[in-house]
């Protein structure tokens, strides 16, 4: 099986890794570069737990052919906090009890971030739409929606990074 080199930035750091043909980005992020924040829940696009941002847009890493991120800029929940300082979304998720088992949380945070980066003052409907591709089996979504709206009020969308 042939290996191909791929380079990209992840949370501001440049990465270089060899990938298998056909390998998906989720696998490469987790096992190739050791960012374990995106999760595998389905490998078929239906759960959203693997959501990462590619050039600022939400993508499902399980459905992304790894070699297609050559030269692109990725961000994941693993890079959301700045040092010890949590991103307002992370803080709001904690305060609103929006993470129960926590398995959907990374994907939810990325889906929420891609919304707030574009639309700092979303309506409730905007939030529901933004997380409509992400499944949470624990919380019933309500605390997540509240947390995202709260984070927006606290200026999450106006913060760079």
């Amino acid at each position: 099986m042939s290996k191909k080199p791929v380079q990209f930035t992840l949370n501001g750091e440049s990465k270089a890794v060899f990938v298998d043909d056909g390998q998906n980005l989720l696998d490469v992020l987790r096992r190739g570069v050791g960012d374990l924040s995106p999760k595998y829940g389905c490998g078929q696009g239906t759960c959203g737990a693997c959501t990462v941002l590619i050039d600022g847009e939400a993508h499902l890493s399980c459905l992304t052919l790894a070699e297609t991120v050559e030269g692109r800029s990725l961000s994941s929940t693993g890079g959301l906090a700045q040092g010890a300082e949590l991103h307002p979304l992370q803080d709001a998720f904690m305060r609103h009890f929006a993470a129960q088992c926590g398995f959907c949380t990374s994907g939810m945070l990325m889906a929420a971030k891609s919304l707030l980066d574009r639309n700092p003052n979303p309506s409730r409907d905007d939030v529901v739409e933004a997380i409509s591709g992400n499944i949470c089996r624990c919380t019933g979504y309500e605390p997540i929606i509240e947390a995202i709206l709260d984070a927006a009020q606290n200026g999450a969308g106006r913060r760079s990074a």
């Binding site: 374990l36 924040s37 693993g78 992370q90 904690m94 009890f97 993470a99 129960q100 949380t105």
Partner: peptide
């Protein structure tokens, strides 16, 4: 606060 919440929101 859940004791595991910080780990959850940081993906750790």
């Amino acid at each position: 606060q859940r004791q595991d919440a910080l780990g959850h929101v940081t993906g750790r």
